[in-house]
Design a protein around this nucleic acid. Structure first.
Lengths: 107, 107
DNA sequence: ATAATGCTTAAGTATAAACTTGACTATTCG
DNA sequence: CGAATAGTCAAGTTTATACTTAAGCATTAT
């Protein structure tokens, strides 16, 4: 049985693909429609739609359809999950040296 | 011709795999040998060796072989690249609202 | 010296991911 | 109204990835 996918899982998986990361990078400059996101990319519109589903499920992007166009915008909360993960790793890593320091202080 | 892989590329690709992320999470608690990293994982030692190559090429992990054991340790600089990427995205995103605010102030 | 440990490499397999095409629906434009 | 635009959906294909097994090579332990 495969372990259930967590937020962190989905976010890292989403950003692991260069095309999706490019989409997120574009969206960080402001909301865009699906087709305008597709335009500069070397893939079809259908491919971008598929990427968008993954990005949305990960919580990195939020979309809203008005009329026939779907507007996609970045969800900063998604980035926050990522940021927390990084900070936690760094913290654990650096804490080791503090602890080591304390031990040395005691001697 | 495929675009050259950047640091950011390699790092996100490396962390996109759950097994590799588990390895990084373990290493954030301190250096470990390849086989001790493999022990709790549901994959063979050979698989971990392969993951380690990818992690090392990404710059997230540094390894050093002494005798017959290879010790792996986290390289905080790798995390920093990630952190910078996140901050930049967030900054760009939020800057939009500041600019919008300035425009509104002027009116 | 022998055995066990720790890792490395090569080769092959299996699964998952990304992408395409083609058909289709819903909206907006002229 | 018809034509163009924007997106959606379903297959099917191809490529990349993760993984395994098996063999081999140092290094350390007995």
């Amino acid at each position: 049985m495969p372990a259930p996918r967590t937020d962190v899982d989905r976010i890292f998986h989403a950003l692991g693909d260069p095309t999706r990361r490019a989409i997120v990078e574009t969206l960080s400059q402001g909301p865009q429609s699906v087709s305008s996101l597709a335009a500069p990319l070397a893939v079809t519109l259908a491919a971008v739609v598929q990427h968008m589903q993954i990005l949305e499920e990960s919580g990195l992007v939020q979309t809203e359809k008005v009329g026939r166009t779907r507007t996609c915008r970045l969800r900063p909360a998604g980035l926050t999950v990522l940021e927390r993960w990084v900070n936690e790793r760094r913290l654990l890593w650096e804490r080791r040296f503090n602890r080591l320091g304390s031990i040395l202080d005691e001697s």
